[in-house]
Design a protein around this nucleic acid. Structure first.
Ligand SMILES: [Mn+2]
Ligand SMILES: [Mn+2]
Ligand SMILES: [Mn+2]
Ligand SMILES: [Mn+2]
Lengths: 237, 237
DNA sequence: CAATAGATTTCGGTCCACCTAAAATAAGCC
DNA sequence: GGCTTATTTTAGGTGGACCGAAATCTATTG
């Protein structure tokens, strides 16, 4: 039932391959994989061959890498560990949400299945991590909330933040300062003429008065919004 | 201030070298080191050379290995991590004391200093782990309780268990069943004729009626007793 | 004090995950 | 369709941690 225990590297590879298609569909290329893992392309080539031998990925030379069922299964356990650990760090150890990623990146390879199960129980079986990413359950099932990238929404749209990409701590700190968190309600305002920055009306989840924030390209591609009421604008407050 | 981050192996080596002299004074030999680490003697020879180059141990060929100040410092941080993690597993995740060692053995290499500090705070800065082993503080200071190995005590002696070696989970389970835990009060009874087993009177810390237990060689060398009142026998109960 | 048994080190070699530089291939463009 | 460019793979090599077998040293002991 349990494969002979994958190395940390293997776990990171399948996790990155999985994550790449979590919020969009194009499979990942060698180069993208290399970038996200911070290793050379050649290293990826070799490792992908190994992953293929292990039955974790499908791969034809010179094309994109996709997970097999086994690979996806492994990836989901790693993602589960990662996100539960992040949740633990925030809820129990008082970490800020921009501090948890690196810590979880290492810890995810060091915890046993028992540990993960007990941790999940202690945390009350959470389904989302501090950044809104879904936490797979022990069987690998997860609920992906319907959401659209903020950069794709038209002016007037509003909804609540469902997910914030956690790979740039700097951005997370900026968003914190602007009062933007998971479940924060936002309304899309006008594009700033040249900068490409978008004006957004931020209101607290409990219907406080909104305040404006300016979000650049980077932020727009890191924020996912639940398509609350995509049609008409019933501004609350 | 911080050395470039030791590998897991290096951390385990210095930890084992340190632990060997925690409750007695003879320094550890190559072979003993190899046994405790589960590696070949030849591997130890090589690694010891590296540790010496790193300034973590003193070593003259063909003799025992001892820690330098730097090595002792590193060892203490590893031990601190290990024991705090064990405490966490028992107190917060409901592990039994025989389950924690292996988990901590891996986790100790994956946690950051920040993690350790916050964990210690959350646990209330404990000074002993679930097996009674002292937990060094952030500066590496630790209080070694005065204690003697149970195997060295004469009949009639009594005192409370201060420390139980945690390297055999099987033994820990046995002791649990016999009602022996850290702070349990025991009185040394007679040696059984040939077996070498010792009869011990076990009473709960809160002065309940005692019951007898039989402890073999293995157990006698794993239990440390605080020299409570080494002189006369004021049997309580 | 020389022989020998036991502990320790050295030697050649493996496996893993990485690297740089060079070769192969796919894709876009005239 | 051929050329060029960008991506991907292969080739050759490194460092870390391990191994078994062989060589070497220490300590005992006869
Ligand atoms: Mn990782
Ligand atoms: Mn996250
Ligand atoms: Mn360890
Ligand atoms: Mn312990």
């Amino acid at each position: 039932m349990k494969s002979p225990a994958a190395s940390s590297s293997i776990e990171d590879y399948v996790k990155v391959i999985y994550s790449f298609t979590e919020w969009q569909d194009k499979p990942i290329s060698s180069t993208q994989l290399a970038q996200r893992l911070g290793v050379a392309n050649s290293s990826v080539s070799e490792m992908v061959r190994k992953l293929k031998d292990l039955g974790l990925v499908d791969h034809k030379p010179y094309s994109a890498v996709t997970l097999t069922e086994a690979g996806r299964g492994l990836a989901l356990t790693v993602v589960r560990r990662h996100r539960l650990i992040e949740t633990f760090l925030v809820e129990e150890l008082g970490y800020a949400w921009d501090e948890v990623h690196d810590e979880a990146e290492l810890l995810e390879h060091a915890v046993s299945e028992t540990f993960v199960d007990r941790l999940a129980a202690k945390l009350g079986h959470p389904t989302r991590d501090p950044h809104g990413d879904p936490i797979p359950d022990a069987d690998g099932a997860l609920e992906l909330p319907a959401a659209r990238l903020l950069s794709e929404l038209d002016e007037g749209h509003h909804g609540s933040i469902t997910r914030i990409s956690d790979d740039d701590p700097e951005l997370l700190r900026y968003l914190s300062r602007e009062g933007i968190d998971v479940d924060t309600h936002v309304e899309v305002g006008p594009r700033k003429p040249f900068s490409g920055a978008l004006q957004v009306l931020v209101s607290t989840a409990d219907g406080g008065a909104g305040h404006p924030a300016e979000l650049g390209e980077q932020a727009l591609h890191a924020l996912w919004v639940a398509d609350d009421t995509p049609h008409e604008g019933c501004t609350l407050a």
